[in-house]
Design a protein around this nucleic acid. Sequence first.
DNA 1: CAATTCACTGCAGAGAGTGCAAAAATGCAG
DNA 2: CTGCATTTTTGCACTCTCTGCAGTGAATTG
Lengths: 205, 205
Amino acid sequence: MKNVIEAVGRRERKKLETRFALRRAALRLVAENGLDRVTVADIADAADVSVRTFFNHFPCKEDALVGADLHRLQKLRAALTEQPPDRAPIAALRAVIIELAAKLSDYREDLLAEMRVVQANPALRAREMSEFAQYERELVAEVARRSGTDPARDLYPLLTARVAVSAFRAALTLWCTIDDPPALSNLVGEAFDLLEQGLPPPQSR
Amino acid sequence: MKNVIEAVGRRERKKLETRFALRRAALRLVAENGLDRVTVADIADAADVSVRTFFNHFPCKEDALVGADLHRLQKLRAALTEQPPDRAPIAALRAVIIELAAKLSDYREDLLAEMRVVQANPALRAREMSEFAQYERELVAEVARRSGTDPARDLYPLLTARVAVSAFRAALTLWCTIDDPPALSNLVGEAFDLLEQGLPPPQSR
DNA sequence: CAATTCACTGCAGAGAGTGCAAAAATGCAG
DNA sequence: CTGCATTTTTGCACTCTCTGCAGTGAATTG
C-alpha cells in the first residue's frame, strides 16, 4: 500500500487518494472484524465516499483487499524476456525474481498487514492464489519460448514456471513471518539454490 | 463427477442424487452459457429442486462447480505419514502423489469437462487454486515433521510441499490437455524426475 | 403403526454488484 | 474570471446471492 502518489493533475491525484482511502479502510476494518462482518457500506463510510464510488474503483469487496498489480506483472515478463538467451530458464527466472524481491524490501510492513488479513480469510486466499496463477501463466509462455518447448506437450515450461513462483511465494511467506528476517533477495536465492539442487533433504546439507 | 453412488439407505441415496443432479446441471449450464449468465435459480430449476435446496448442498454457486474433496485431502496426508521415515521428503511426496494419480486415471473425461469450465472462469480458477493451497498446507506440516525442520523458520518444508503440488498440477494439466496422453502416473513421475534433477533445461537432456 | 429424523420447501430480509442519469469537481480555452 | 467539456462522484432502482426460520412430507426406527 504505497502512499507515494506520483500522479500529475489534481483530478488524478484525488482519484488515487479515494482509491487508497478505500483500500486502507477496507484493510483496517477487515483486520479488526473479519471479512464477512464488514460490508461495503462500512468501507465506503470509513473512507467517506458513497457505496457506488466504491464499486467505481473495485469490482468487488475482495479486490479492495488483494488488488492484482498488472503493471508489475508486465514488467516481470519484460524483464524475463531481456535476460540473456543462453541462460538456463531456471537461472533467468532466479535473476528476475531476485530483482523483483529487491523492489519489495521497503514494503515489509504493508505486506505483512495484508498477508495477515489474507491468511485469515479463505476467500481472500483464493484471490491471492489466482493472482499468483497469473504470474505463472505469464512465465510459462516465456519459459517455453526460451527453451523451445511446447507448453501444451511438454511438462518442462509449466513445471519450471510454477516452481519458480513457488520459490518466490515460499520466500515471501517466510520473510513476512519471521522476526528479524534476512533480505528477501537472499531468501529467494536460498529457495532457488534448493531447487537447483533437486530439493535435498536438510540432513544432507 | 462419479455416478457411482454407494450409499445405503434410500434417503442418503436420494440426497446424493440431488447433489449430483445439481452439480451436473451447474457444470452443463455454465459450460454452455458462462458463469455469470447462469443464476442459482437456473441451476436449481434444471435439477428440479428449489433454490433453497441448492444452498443446503452448496454454500455458494462456485462450490457446486469445483467442490473441494476433504476426504481425499485427509487420505493424502495419511498416506504421506505412512511412508517409510528414512525416505527423503521429495521421494515420499512422489510416491503418494503417484498413488493419487493412479486413482484419478479413470475420471479423465469428467476432469476434462470440469477443467474447461474452470479455465474459462477466473472466479472458479481462484477457487481451484485455493483448493490446491489446502493440499500444500497439509503437506507442509508433514514435510516439516519428516525433515525435523520448522516451517516458520526454514524454507525447506514450505518450498518442498509447494513444489510437489506444482508437479502434480503441471502433470494434471498436461494430462487433461493433450490428446492421447500417457498415464497420469507417468507424467507425475516425469515431473518429479525434473524436480530432483534441479530442472535442467531441455537442451541438456 | 406411531414416533422420530431429515431432506426439502417457501418466505422474508440483508448484502453484493450493475446500469443509468443527475450533480459536483476539475481542467482548459478564451 | 467565465463558460464549456470531461471526469468523478452520487443516488436510485433493480437483480442476484446467501442466510435464518418455520413448516411439510417422506424415510427410518422400534
